[in-house]
């Protein structure tokens, strides 16, 4: 899948590949022996955060799980 930053897709693919392995083989099995993907994540983030800035995508200041607090009574 492509990244929003055209130049970040390759970095994203490398990171995704690393993450998916770590997630299935370590994280879900309760193995917390460090994160092998952190360097790849850093590089990918530098690229994608710059792309977000360049494209003026309004992601700043959005609360985590924000709409959870606005959830209406059903």
């Amino acid at each position: 899948m492509n990244s929003v930053g055209e130049g970040c897709t390759e970095l994203k693919r490398e990171y995704d590949h690393c993450f998916n392995r770590w997630f299935a083989e370590k994280f879900l099995k309760g193995d917390r022996s460090g994160d092998p993907c952190s360097e790849m994540f850093k590089k990918y983030q530098q690229c994608v955060q710059q792309a977000i800035k360049d494209k003026d995508i309004p992601v700043d200041g959005i609360e985590f799980m924000g709409p959870n607090k606005e959830k209406p009574e059903s």
Partner: peptide
């Protein structure tokens, strides 16, 4: 595990890009 890898698929033509912008344990 499949959730993170679900794009692209034949039913996701409307999804153009996908990025992780924050992640932590």
């Amino acid at each position: 595990s499949a959730f993170w890898q679900r794009y692209p698929n034949p039913f996701s033509k409307h999804v153009l890009t996908e990025d992780v912008i924050h992640r932590e344990v």
